[in-house]
């Protein structure tokens, strides 16, 4: 606690750096994963290939990936872009499977009905398929968010500012308070992100909320309505 109170500014600074490092990969990863997931879901061959390649990508250890990034990107060795891109790769690798599963979870009868109503292919994707895949996409995004926030700490190993600095520095200098602060702060960020995602889900996907009590009541009421001829 003593360490924290005397290093408050540093911790805040690192929290902001950590958030700034984590958000772009989550957002960009999500955006890239949707079309890839669509392609994966569309054809059986592409599903196999895409999921295999991304599965392999996810198995690459993070430190080598961070270090090799400048070779691919031509960026300076200490540029945060290296970490951002690497984290985005992990995010995509995780998210594409959720995207493919989410799109696959949409009832084909509903898609057929949407086409029969006169949705064009494009409209059907944006207004029916994607929203209906929402709950599975959200579940996947929550995993991606937690994974990215945790992986971002490793950026400190290659000199990119994040809460990981507190682990490394605290471990080297043997300051347990610093290490614990790093861990707790990372956890707090992960939990806050998760809560935000759940909140966004509540707002965007109000139809998917399972409230069995309300449902049971509505069913009971509608039965009565039918029996009394009002329904």
């Amino acid at each position: 606690m003593k360490w924290l109170s005397s290093n408050w500014d540093l911790v805040w600074q690192l929290v902001f750096a950590h958030v700034a490092l984590s958000v772009p990969p989550i957002v960009i990863g999500f955006v890239i994963a949707i079309p890839l997931g669509w392609v994966a879901n569309r054809y059986r061959v592409s599903r196999g290939i895409i999921l295999l390649v991304l599965g392999l990508l996810y198995t690459i250890p993070s430190i080598p990936l961070f270090i090799f990034m400048p070779l691919f990107l031509g960026t300076p060795l200490l540029s945060p872009v290296n970490v951002t891109v690497a984290l985005t790769i992990y995010a995509v690798a995780l998210m594409v499977r959720s995207a493919a599963d989410g799109l696959r979870s949409v009832d084909p009868d509903i898609l057929q009905a949407a086409s029969a109503m006169g949705y064009s292919g494009w409209q059907r994707f944006w207004r029916v398929e994607l929203p209906l895949a929402g709950p599975v996409l959200l579940a996947g995004l929550r995993v991606v968010s937690a994974s990215t926030v945790s992986l971002a700490t490793i950026g400190s190993v290659v000199g990119v500012s994040s809460l990981g600095y507190l682990f490394i520095n605290g471990f080297q200098r043997n300051i347990p308070g610093e290490v614990i602060t790093g861990i707790v702060a990372t956890l707090v960020i992960a939990v806050v992100f998760d809560l935000l995602l759940v909140l966004v889900g509540r707002l965007l996907l109000p139809w998917s909320r399972r409230d069995s009590r309300v449902r049971a009541r509505d069913v009971a009421r509608s039965r009565t309505a039918v029996l009394t001829g009002a329904g």
Binding site: D109, I110, Q112, A113, A114, A116, M117, V128, P131, L132, G134, L205, W207, S208
Partner: peptide
Amino acid sequence: GYVMQNSGLLPHR
């Protein structure tokens, strides 16, 4: 107009 079995209603609307 098109009406199908199991209504085919959009669950999110």
